[in-house]
Amino acid sequence: MITAPAVPEGEQQTLPIASNDDVVRARQLVRTLAQQCKLSLVDQTKLVTAASELARNTLVHGNGGTMRVGLVDKGGRRGVSAVFQDTGPGIPDLELALTDGWTSGGGMGLGLSGARRLTDEFAIDTEVGRGTVVTVVKWTR
């Protein structure tokens, strides 16, 4: 990536994602930060929805993992970043996994592609047998 990395501002919080309840907690934590960051209501809703999709992916496809969230700052612009990490099977065909409607499980296949559309920055790092890390950022306007 050529763009300057977002600088973490303040504390980053890490939440385990090991159960359905943790997915709910992940949504709540992201919402709290989105409010602190003063994202607009629509942007808060988009980010929390994306976080819900990614947290569920971490649980269902990654066999559980963690979410690390915090406020970030880039050139005076504030945002919320969330990093979802698992040590699951990884994604063999990333391009396919990012296609609308493609699903490896019982879902609708909107999780990854939808989360990408709902956020301002979306990065994914995956390796078969090692796991997957998805990073998203939503910036204030």
Partner: peptide, 14 residues
Amino acid sequence: MRPAVAITLVELGL
């Protein structure tokens, strides 16, 4: 349904 939810759902692809 809240307006922000409707906007998000459509962008999500649903």
